[in-house]
Design a protein around this nucleic acid. Sequence first.
DNA 1: CGGTGTGTTGAAAGGTGTCAATGCTAGTGG
DNA 2: CCACTAGCATTGACACCTTTCAACACACCG
Lengths: 247, 247
Amino acid sequence: MDPIIRKFSRHFDLSDDERTVLNGLTAKSNQISANTVIVSAGDPCVYTYLVQSGWCMIYKLLPDGSLQILSYAIPGDFLDLFGVVLNRSEHSIQAITDSRICPIREEQILELFRNYPRLALTICWFGARDQILLREQIARIGRQSAYNRISHLILELHDRLHTVGLADNDSFIFPVTQEMLADTLGLTPVHVNRTLKKLRNNGLMDISDQRVHILDKHRLMEETRFDPSYLEDAVVPDDITSQPVKN
Amino acid sequence: MDPIIRKFSRHFDLSDDERTVLNGLTAKSNQISANTVIVSAGDPCVYTYLVQSGWCMIYKLLPDGSLQILSYAIPGDFLDLFGVVLNRSEHSIQAITDSRICPIREEQILELFRNYPRLALTICWFGARDQILLREQIARIGRQSAYNRISHLILELHDRLHTVGLADNDSFIFPVTQEMLADTLGLTPVHVNRTLKKLRNNGLMDISDQRVHILDKHRLMEETRFDPSYLEDAVVPDDITSQPVKN
DNA sequence: CGGTGTGTTGAAAGGTGTCAATGCTAGTGG
DNA sequence: CCACTAGCATTGACACCTTTCAACACACCG
């Protein structure tokens, strides 16, 4: 089954008509190699993308030359879903690994809004979820120690990856360098390194060789007070899902 | 003219039909007093709100007891616009000042998606803008000094308030305590106080008596490297705005 | 084989936090 | 009208988490 169908199906049962439209969205995809810049800040927003495989990062290059990574996109995530209603992108997007992404034209999204209100609403749900992740990121950076920032982010990623079948119970492939972790969490690479060492010595997690090993998830969640409820799926409200597809 | 009409009109010309629907959204409004909790984390999402007057804050209470303010809502802003597609709220919302807010039922938003695609898309635009502000907040907290965090936030708020006529060229009412500023920017109240003093001594801005005075906007923008372009309005794409209202 | 990116470690500096005390203003109640 | 309190702003001294600077190890790769 096409990933996009699976993604939307999580929220309600699709009609045949809707399946056809969604399949049309992902008819073609592009293979891109690691470090490819997909969207550059200031670019006009013409496409949104569905990540089929690989990791991407959404980031801002600040005027002082520093880098702030805002979020990571993993398979199943949309890149810049709402970008299509904006004139130009305020951030940049880059592939971290070799990736396969599926470009979706602005026009195709608008078509959903015109004629497929349930799909349009579901897209809003994806957007709402992105917002939740951004808010969680703010709370991480704003009010937690380096130790907890890293723990919390790793737990979140583990949960997200597990949902799409890319993590087993205690490990996953993690193509993020310590420097990128630093640029994500508002730290320095050096301090990330020291903190990772401490996490390892404490028997909580081990990040090495592009792989995260969660050594003691229970204690990790307890010490970080990680509450994964914000990652749960929602269901699109009945009163619209039960509507006929077209008005 | 009703504020909500003005808000949507900024993006395209409304049909009479659309005006009627929008007016219906804001038919009634509630006066609430300062410090009222409007939404509490964990609540089911039944309403979104349009702020007509006053300031509100969106925040998270963290498990360790600390507070992270995520964003501020000023008149013309929606509170929790996408909340309606979620099962429960992940954050809390509280009035900072006495405020007038206009509750909008979930069902009313869904109605827009069913029958008023242009309005639904515009709502996405508002959501996209919220996302941009959240991302900017991440960059502020993650990669800037206390000095620049405060400057940047104040410049952003000044711009936003100016847009809705609540700031003149160099000052605005600012009902935010130093402690709240600290909880917004990931600092301590003590350090906020010292930093404000430094900003004042440097002749950049003065915050006192619930009011911000911008003393030297040019230098402030230069030192902070503040680029307000992310605050500009976008226009909803022609190809949907030129569509008939109903399909 | 040298170059480059990444990880690792040490020492020192510094921005920010912590603790604690004081002043100020508005509001409350006697 | 005056205590009295509560909330907020302000300041000093000191501790500490994090940064900065620098050096070195290691793996990968052309």
